[in-house]
Design a protein around this nucleic acid. Structure first.
Length: 482
RNA sequence: CGCGGGGUAGAGCAAUUGGCAGCUCGCAAGGCUCAUAACCUUGAGGUUGUGGGUUCGAGUCCCACCCCCGCAACCA
């Protein structure tokens, strides 16, 4: 079995924030879970680096776009490495094989006869260097620049998305193309029913982009450019074997606002090029920070690196996956993270492993039989994860932790140890097995912690372990200062 | 206007296909001493936003209404 999973690629004009991390962690958990099941997994993430906006940002800093990109993509890569993402490739849309992939597939789409030259007439604001719509205007003027937009006609290449909408709808309805959750699926179906306009796939006025192979004066529209990463990342040009093995993608994990691109435009492009469409798109919800939309102007943008350096990557990963029901919007804050850290991690899992390893050392000289005999059902967790119920899977695992703590209190090993060595060994042996199983299931969510647990029980002589989640002494400042 | 999401215990949330309304935190009482002042037990706390309807049975399905959030920008 193969499993190919992707995340959205991030636009590098900003820095990674907790909302980006959320999606990446979810995809990573799935990738790790499938590896654990013995499947061949390819996990792709990366950065989106073309477009007028990037050029604009670069110019502001007196940089060439490429230099700007080289510098800024690092922010994302570093953040993902800090979070322990196990990606198989980090793709940049400025990578050479991606440029080739874009050229190749566009040529194919053109050969298929689904591209045509057209004109787009719109109101162009010079200040914005972009087209505005009626809605954007106030009294016929651009509200930001106070100028009257010019009527400009632009020549573009258009893609006949409409030729494929029936086929896409068919695939969605029949289930060969899955959209999760249901609400998003319904949304896409209703969009398809309303009829989907053809899209302009080239821009004559954008310099920083991939030139159209047959019309070098135009560059490829950034969205089209970006979507293609999903095939260039698995060797669409350059590694036919890899591509054949992993395409089509099993899941594209993206935010709910961009499912339109992934569920309509992207499949249409693939169909035009004669390629298989992805098996599924999952649209996750949005995060708010302190119950407010994450935004720079509000000032509640959370840098994942800060949380990771303070609480550790596993704690942040756990928090994101446990706190929010995937697919829905959810709220995060440092207070909530702290509460999960102390309650679930330090007092729950951490304390359990401490008291258990301590008792084994103290009452059994570190030696108890501890073969793993999983009592927790693999398929139960599997079913939950296949349905993106991360928080429920973790809840299940925490039930096992609660059970272990109860079992300790009921059996009272510290009393039994006084006069019945055989029984205390039996009790602690059972617990050791249970905790190892917990560690096993925890591995996709908290790889470092799972490894620590594994090592602690792997040795012949078990000794009391260092706290897995030590108390964080310093005072926690509110993450949002109003 | 329209589109999407939401309203469930003091707070934060959960409830596969309609089937005894649950979880965590907090609060109250008790227990334990192996453990990171950690752990365990019990308890209090609800007219599931409002009003109708369908049903043996509705948080869940249908209708109407009220309220909150997002849909311009930085931004997933």
């Amino acid at each position: 079995m193969k499993y190919y999973i992707t995340t959205a690629i991030d636009y590098i004009n900003g820095k990674p924030h907790i909302g980006h991390s959320y999606e990446k962690v979810a995809a990573d958990v799935l990738a790790r879970w499938h590896r654990l099941k013995g499947e061949q997994v390819f996990f792709l993430t990366g950065t989106d680096e073309h477009g007028a906006k990037i050029a604009e940002f670069a110019a502001k800093q007196d940089q060439q776009p490429q230099a700007f990109a080289d510098e800024n993509f690092q922010n994302f890569k570093l953040a993902w490495d800090n979070l322990g993402l196990s990606y198989d490739r980090f793709i940049r849309t400025t990578d050479k094989d991606h440029l080739k992939a874009v050229e190749t597939i566009l040529k194919k789409i053109k050969e298929s006869g689904h591209l045509y030259e057209g004109e787009y007439t719109g109101m162009y604001c010079v200040g914005h260097e972009a087209f505005l719509t009626e809605k954007d205007l106030v009294d016929g003027l651009c509200p930001e620049h106070g100028t009257k937009p010019e009527i400009i006609t632009e020549k573009n290449w258009f893609f006949k998305v409409s030729s494929f909408t029936a086929q896409i709808k068919e695939a969605i309805v029949s289930g060969t193309f899955k959209i999760w959750p249901e609400e998003r699926k319904n949304e896409i179906l209703s969009l398809l029913d309303q009829g989907f306009n053809d899209i302009a796939i080239s821009r004559p006025n954008v310099q920083w982009g991939i030139p159209l192979p047959w019309d070098k004066k135009q560059t490829v529209y950034v969205w089209v450019d970006a979507l293609i990463n999903y095939i260039s990342g698995v060797g669409y040009v350059g590694d036919k074997e890899l591509f054949k093995k992993f395409w089509p993608a099993d899941w594209h994990v993206v935010g709910k606002d961009i499912i339109k691109f992934h569920c309509i435009i992207w499949p249409a492009m693939l169909l035009a090029a004669g390629l298989d469409i992805p098996k599924g798109v999952v649209g996750h919800g949005y995060l708010t920070a302190g119950n407010k939309k994450i935004s720079k102007s509000i000032g509640n943008v959370i840098d994942p690196n800060e949380w990771v350096s303070k609480y550790g990557s596993d704690a942040v990963r756990y928090f994101l996956m446990r706190e929010i029901s995937f697919g829905q919007d959810g709220d995060v804050s440092e207070e909530k993270l702290q509460s999960r850290y102390e309650g679930d991690l330090a007092n729950g899992l951490g304390n359990l492993v401490s008291r258990l390893t301590n008792m084994i050392e103290k009452y059994c000289h570190g030696e108890v039989p501890h073969t793993v005999s999983p009592e927790m059902n693999l398929s139960e967790i599997d079913l939950l994860l296949e349905n993106f119920k991360f928080h429920e899977a973790l809840q299940k695992i925490w039930e096992a932790i609660a059970w272990s703590n109860q079992y300790i209190d009921e059996t009272k090993p510290w009393q039994v140890a006084k006069d019945n060595q055989e029984e205390v060994e039996a009790i602690l042996s059972k617990l050791a097995a249970e905790v190892q199983v917990i560690g096993y299931f925890l591995a996709p969510f908290m790889p470092d912690t799972a490894e620590k647990i594994r090592l602690a029980f792997e040795s012949d002589t078990i000794t009391k372990i260092e706290p897995l989640f030590p108390r964080i002494e310093e005072e926690v400042l509110p993450s949002i200062l109003l």
